[in-house]
Amino acid sequence: MMPSNTKKENRGFSFLVFASIFGSLGLGLMLVWLNIERVDLAYEVRTHQTELDKKNQYITKLNVERDNLMAPARLRELARDLDLGPAQPGQIRRIKAE
């Protein structure tokens, strides 16, 4: 017959073994879950990255379009159509506000 102390030690040892096994299993599952999440996140980041690149390209092209519309030569033509032109000497008045 085993002494009661040895039995207790064996139970404790078994508990540790099972706890370790289940702990490892749990950690393993968590690792798998985290990897799946990571890949999902990577897909999402990739989608957003593509969208961002596309938007940045639009911004660049819109800026170019704006600069084209604001080009001095074009503004000059528009001004000419409206009978406007650079101020000539004598056409400017500076009035100080009180």
């Binding site: 650079p86 000497p89 004598g90 056409q91 400017i92 500076r94």
Partner: peptide, 17 residues
């Protein structure tokens, strides 16, 4: 020169003229 002066705010005023 006139356009450059006008652009940089250096065109003379009527009174100065």
């Amino acid at each position: 020169a006139v356009e450059t002066l006008a652009y940089s705010g250096m065109v003379p005023e009527g009174l100065q003229l």
